[in-house]
Amino acid sequence: MNEIPTTYFLFLAAFLFSIGLAIVISKKNIILILMGIELMLNAGNINLVVFSRSDTSMIQGQLLALFVLIIAAIEASIALALVVLIYKHFNTLELDELNKYKN
């Protein structure tokens, strides 16, 4: 199991994190931004899992990754409920349109 070097996983997680950040920055739709946040959380999870390989007696990294997974599920459920509510109120999900209702 330990044949793959840790740095490979770290490169992959770094790429995933930057893609998620790019999606959060460049997309205008709220649901797409949520997807970007999920990608960034997953990049963090990959790092946690990979670093917990190096302590075999106590897999604290995997436990923390498990908690991150559950928090991500909670965040997604609340955020999508809010998205539905926003759509019902303003009839749009584009952030530029929503900026008009600031005041």
Binding site: M1, I4, F9, N45, I46, V49, I59, Q62
Partner: peptide
């Protein structure tokens, strides 16, 4: 694919 990566990193339950 990320769950496949987890398996390769030894985290099967995750």
């Amino acid at each position: 694919s990320i769950s496949g990566i987890f398996i390769l990193a030894g985290a099967d339950f995750l």
